[in-house]
Simulated assay, not measured.
Amino acid sequence: MLLVLHGLSAYRLWFRSTRRPAPSGATDVRVLAAASPTRTSVAYLREAMPWLGPTPHLLCAQNSRRVDGAAAHRSSYRYPPGSFLPVGGGVHAASPELTAVQLALRCPSPLLEKALCMLLGTWAPAPDGLYGTLSRPPLTDAPALGAYLAACPGLPGASALARALPRAIERVASPAEADLALALCLPPRLGGQSLPKPVANHRIDLSPRGRALARQRVAYVDLCWPDRGLVLEYDADLTHLNPEQHARDASRRAALESDGYKVITVTTEHLYGPRSLDPIADEAARVLGIRRRARPAGFRERQRALQGLPRGYDLPDDLFA
């Protein structure tokens, strides 16, 4: 029997994926018509993909039977082409676009925006799940998500996703970069500092003088507002760098500043406490030429809630129970 990963389970698959599978065969509602899990197929799935968690979430045909050990999400919606992608072993997954819609049903802001940053980002964990990271192309992008929403009128979760999508940041290269971008750019009602959205992992071609200082031709910076010459760099280990690393970072910063960029470094202590991110946001607003408004009542509580989101990209099981 065919299995289709839904919502949280599809998200956990995409989180580990280093590429998006190419569509093959049926990718529309015909896939769902054949999706009816059995005890044997669910046992196979739990063994093959233990990282799905204690209860795999599966999208099923409306008339499918209940199977112990899986959360069945039944649907009779006529999903458009591209909604389901084969991932091997008789298993399909909701596409990154459909996964985003399904997450929006249960995942509140700003956790939803952070999950979108993963789907739109360029980072995956190394295959062993313990050490290192891998670069990968984004699994989707904002235009593709918008086009999918336009093709799915009335699909549950679509309205919530449409509201959240403009707040997500594309092409971040780590969960911490996503946390930083959201902390700076979300509206105050969600605990953010309401700065304009930056370009993540922006490429800067250094001038001859910048190249000489940095000993490299190109610099990729974490967050950038190119039209205002502002760069924010996240450095989790700033206080633990050895002298060679300090010298390399200082040369890179000198190169960017020589080319006219204002560079602000943010550390883990700024992002997650105990140091405040407010002075960083105030200085960024000054460079961007933005007049800061008074923070609304309850802002500190929302800011602490934003800082308290789970680290990394995984999502809590209890949201989808």
Rank of each mutant, 00 (worst) to 15 (best):
A285E: 05
L232F: 13
L5H: 01
R304I: 08
G260A: 12
L145V: 05
A33T: 03
D235N: 15
L232P: 02
A173K: 00
Q216I: 06
G146I: 00
R189Q: 15
H6P: 00
A212C: 09
L105V: 14
G25F: 13
A48E: 15
G89K: 02
S109N: 10
S75N: 12
G312P: 03
D235H: 15
R228L: 09
P187M: 06
P175A: 10
V67G: 00
K197I: 12
L139V: 10
Y148N: 04
G129D: 09
P196I: 06
L2P: 00
L116T: 01
H73I: 09
R302H: 15
P110L: 08
V266E: 00
R253L: 06
V67C: 05
V263H: 08
L155I: 14
F299D: 05
S75P: 07
L288F: 10
L145C: 08
L165C: 08
A297Q: 15
I204P: 02
V218D: 07
M118L: 15
P279T: 07
D318H: 13
R20M: 05
L134W: 07
M1N: 08
H6M: 06
R20V: 06
D314P: 01
A168F: 10
N242R: 14
Q102M: 12
E113P: 10
R252E: 04
L3I: 11
A284S: 10
A48P: 04
L139F: 04
R163N: 12
S36A: 15
Q307T: 03
S9I: 01
P243Q: 14
G89R: 06
R20H: 11
P208N: 09
L271S: 08
